[in-house]
Design a protein around this nucleic acid. Sequence first.
RNA 1: CCGGGUUUAGCGAAGUUUGGUAUCGCGCUUGGUUUGGGACCAAGAGACCGUGGGUUCAAGUCCCGCAACCCGGACCA
Length: 467
Amino acid sequence: MAKEKKVEQITDMEVDFAQWFTDVCKKAELISYSSIKGIFVYRPYGYAIWENIQKILDAEFKKCGVENVYMPMLIPESLLQKEKDHVEGFAPECAWVTMGGSEKLEERYCVRPTSETLFCEHFREVIQSHRDLPKCYNQWCSVLRWEKTSRPFLRHREFLWQEGHTMHATAEEAEAYTQRMLNVYADFCENVLAMKFNGAEATYTIECMMHDRKALQAGTSHYFGDGFAKAFDITFTNKDNQRAYPHQTSWGVSTRLIGGIIMTHGDNSGLVLPPKIAPVQVIVVPVAQHKPGVSEAAQALCDRLNAAGYRAKIDLSDQSLGWKCAEYEMKGVPLRVEMGPRDMENGQCVMVRRDNGEKTFVAVSELEAKAGELLQAVHDGLYARAKKNLEDHIYEAHSLEEAKQLQEQNGGFIKTMWCGDEACELKMKEVAGMSSRCMPFAQEHLDDVCPICGKPAKHSILWGVAY
RNA sequence: CCGGGUUUAGCGAAGUUUGGUAUCGCGCUUGGUUUGGGACCAAGAGACCGUGGGUUCAAGUCCCGCAACCCGGACCA
């Protein structure tokens, strides 16, 4: 069903996708700019989405035996430098604390860009025996990376995330745990955020496709081997009374997920939120509320919905009906319930889905049941649309030139075979502007050879333009 | 980091060419009428014109520096 556009302040996504995204972030009151570039204020409505994400994911982590901890915000330079590759990766974008009060510090401290080193320092202290393993730790915190350019949710200098770090007695156990956490993220994306993605092996990433057909990495889960354990001298005594290095995993998602939600589900009227993480799931709007009894009848609906466990709100302000409808559409509230004089006479209310604008007349007696049904329908509708968007925009290519052309014409993911050489990845980036997004779990045989170098192919791989 | 654009009331803009009393729309406040898709009338409040220097009797306007934001590119989660 075609929906006419009602919010002239929001730029159409077909006209300018980037501007649309920024408009939605501002108009839906998710975020504000601060006085420091790249560091944003999460407004109550935006932060509430993150709180809902935290609540649901945290419960899933705990089912996997994860314990939450909190590590220091500052990392001494000497500690950061213990693992060579790690420093090289993060040092260029570290912010440093050099003064304590008015005194210059002996050693400068880095504001954490990630906390592997702190976790490792701590693991060294608490891991002695195989009986101390596994250690499955996670922390919810913010990290700081001095990015050159920034965009709301997609690239902040300071952003909120969760970082899980676990230590295991064997490589097998650690690898299995890495996959298990990837599955937690995958289930969360599909069942909570209604986002469709490509899972992967080897790189362990979740790649979602946005409305503009660019890829967004929504979560990662890494198997680290024992590299950090060796660098930080973390050892334990195994059952055979021998010293051994434990094997590590690391996994995280950030507030970038919210950027993904916006770009996956949003439309030209604004934000569209998956019901499970929407701060307000149902907005109750009285119609002609000055007429006797209308406000009370609407309030009663709202109270009943809250009592039934839904997150419902009512708007009794004296704004016009049209204003209220547009306002809550912009903010992505999944379901609107209208109650007016005519409804009162008929013992009914009107329910309007945010995802497709469909209106349903509902007997007041069926309020709770029908609200639940429609919220689920919104979730399913969003998921179906996201899935279709992904599936419709995966194209198969058999040569470098064809891959380039397909990307230019259609965007999306381009599927090819790959020999496994990094040189071919660089070549693809250079020629077609695409990076490897992931090697799908569902491997296919499209050709015998790598279309880039002609050597025997080892995997099928997806390429795309990423955020 | 490179290349382009922008910065004037809470938001969006005009005014800058040709220096001379700070403008408009939305929003906000007060009162009243309204309400089945962004209502209307009336009266108000609100701006060291992004920031620091310079030129001038006089700078939103001219000159030089800096910053922030937006859009592309490179890089990253």
